[in-house]
Amino acid sequence: MVAGGPIIEARDVDFYYGAFHALKGVSLDVAAKETTALIGPSGCGKSTFLKLLNRMNDFVPGARLSGEIKVAGRSIYGSDSDPVSIRRLVGMVFQRPNPFPKSIYDNICYGPRLIGARKKADLDVLVEKALKAAALWDDVKDKLTKSALDLSGGQQQRVCIARALALSPEILLMDEPTSALDPIATAKVEEWIKEADLSIVIVTHNMQQAARVSEHTAFFYLGELVEFGPTMEIFTRPRERRTENYITGRFG
């Protein structure tokens, strides 16, 4: 991938939950190696859009899609595309920390083992690399065999980040990753996002967070992409009235 080029290209995406028209003609390019924030009030479609990027909406009964989404140049909803291989390319961190009820080590190894990694020495290296990348290594290096559920919420969320990173994804999707965390844990996760050398798409309710961590921001409202541009511009000189009303707190 060329840094700066789009790693995700969405064209005219319409998405329905049964009869509900959840996304209306959304077109959006996500730049590689940068962080893109999706903001907007509850029910605006930002999380729905995020979950389209790794086909997690496939599990929703009655979900229908038109338009095209390309990840790293490949159409992910084409007839020959395979959700499983897409999800290895596009990792995801969820709203609430959801480590498996297994050891920290086994949590990190889950993805690599699915694709056949077996050798202990290789896995050891991978675990250390992933935990270091998630800024958790120093906290847990002496208790890798302990249950991940015994960690604090913030540490659990970083285990989930490390678990996703262990597959070396091109893109990391984050669905309000700090909404269940305390301010200190939130700051650590935000710090990580800013440092990460990875394409990140983050959904957040917290506009300060979007301003702090992202290079680009997309504002969704009632299923439409209202405005998309450099974060600085969205927050200082929004072109649309609705964007301005939202970021100044007039509704939300």
Partner: peptide, 22 residues
């Protein structure tokens, strides 16, 4: 929890792998 199953799917596990390993 649905969360935990989703985590498995999001890591590229098939349905069978998710049932068996998670």
């Amino acid at each position: 929890p649905r969360d935990v199953l989703d985590a498995s799917y999001a890591l590229g596990a098939t349905r069978w792998e998710t049932i068996w390993k998670v």
